[in-house]
């Protein structure tokens, strides 16, 4: 058999048409171009979001000459007298999301333990759908329930009007509960069986096994869930806005009206003129939200790297 460059006699199919128009090549191109376009679109979207929000957010300082430190650390938000201190809102956002994580984490971890360590059967059948449904309830509904059940309750038990950081944090904690629970459950379920068996084999009780072996092993994953939950709480707008009271100052108690970055944007964006200083200041707050998203994603990445080792 010798090398020659004639068409092999039995290599049929697709050979008659010119190279470029062969059906399978055309299909290959269609597929590649189409899917690449879709992915490119994702990148265009994220780049434009960052670009537009950043350019608007920066103009408060670059164009309107508001001082950055005055914005970040100023306690007075009085747009009418040119005071653009956003500290009350930044403070409100951090406090509510931290408190929400503090409330939700133990509940979530317990729910995850219930589903994996105590009664997997029952857990899968009852608690799992419950958690999924909690995740599916829209945030305005949480806000509505917060406003019509939680706030009156807090008002009757604690001093103040019921609205405030406490109400906001509790509503948020229920909202982020599914996030933490599902991640913790996944982590617990993926634990190798022999890890626990070794502990039980040594005569340890279930709690000794959980607290001594299980939790330490999955701690990075649980923290990942907590950070993701905080990220969600930090960016949540309407539910918090409906119950927090929206007063533009740093509250002195948990039961005093307060504001978050998202709530102040929600309320004021449509009442201010595009391009005005006050409007730009709101964009600067949106920029903070955006930057915090990157911080949260980064922390999650770092935690995930630890999980892998």
């Amino acid at each position: 058999m010798k090398a020659n460059h004639e068409t092999p006699p039995f290599m049929k199919a697709n050979q008659e048409t010119p190279l470029l128009f062969r059906k399978h090549r055309a299909e290959e191109w269609i597929g590649r171009i189409y899917t690449t376009f879709c992915v490119a679109l994702l990148i265009v979207i994220i780049v434009s979001i960052v670009y537009f929000v950043a350019s608007k957010g920066v103009s408060t300082f670059a164009v309107n000459g508001v001082s950055l430190s005055g914005f970040l650390f100023g306690q007075n938000w009085q747009p009418d007298s040119d005071k653009f201190g956003a500290l009350p809102f930044i403070f409100g956002s951090f406090v509510t999301s931290l408190l929400a994580a503090v409330i939700a984490s133990p509940l979530s971890v317990c729910a995850a333990l219930f589903m994996t360590e105590i009664t997997p059967n029952w857990g899968k059948k009852v608690l799992q759908p419950v958690v999924e449904l909690l995740a599916g309830i829209p945030s305005v509904v949480y806000g509505f329930i917060g406003l019509s059940v939680l706030v009156p309750f807090l008002r009757s038990v604690f001093p103040g009007q019921g609205i405030g950081v406490a109400a906001g944090s509790i509503v948020l904690s229920i909202m982020i509960l599914p996030t933490i629970t599902s991640i913790a459950t996944d982590a617990l379920a993926s634990l190798p069986r022999n890890l626990k068996e070794a502990s039980y084999g040594l005569g340890a009780t279930r709690w000794q096994t959980i607290s001594g072996v299980v939790i330490p092993t999955v701690l990075p994953s649980i923290l990942t869930g907590v950070v993701l939950g905080m990220a969600r709480a930090f960016g949540e707008a309407l539910a918090v806005q409906m119950v927090i009271g929206n007063a533009p100052h740093i509250p002195s108690s948990l039961f005093e009206s307060a504001s978050t970055l998202t709530s102040v944007i929600t309320l004021n964006m449509s009442n201010t003129v595009m391009g005005s200083v006050q409007n730009n200041a709101l964009w600067s707050m949106a920029l903070i939200l955006l930057l915090m998203t990157f911080v949260f994603v980064l922390v999650v990445r770092l935690l995930e790297r630890r999980t892998k080792i």
Partner: peptide, 21 residues
């Protein structure tokens, strides 16, 4: 790899057509 007088381990081989056969 010679098949019917053509080296199919060549960069210009249309792998899809090859596999059809």
């Amino acid at each position: 790899i010679w098949i019917d007088g053509k080296n199919i381990n060549a960069p210009d081989t249309d792998v899809t057509v090859l596999r059809q056969n």
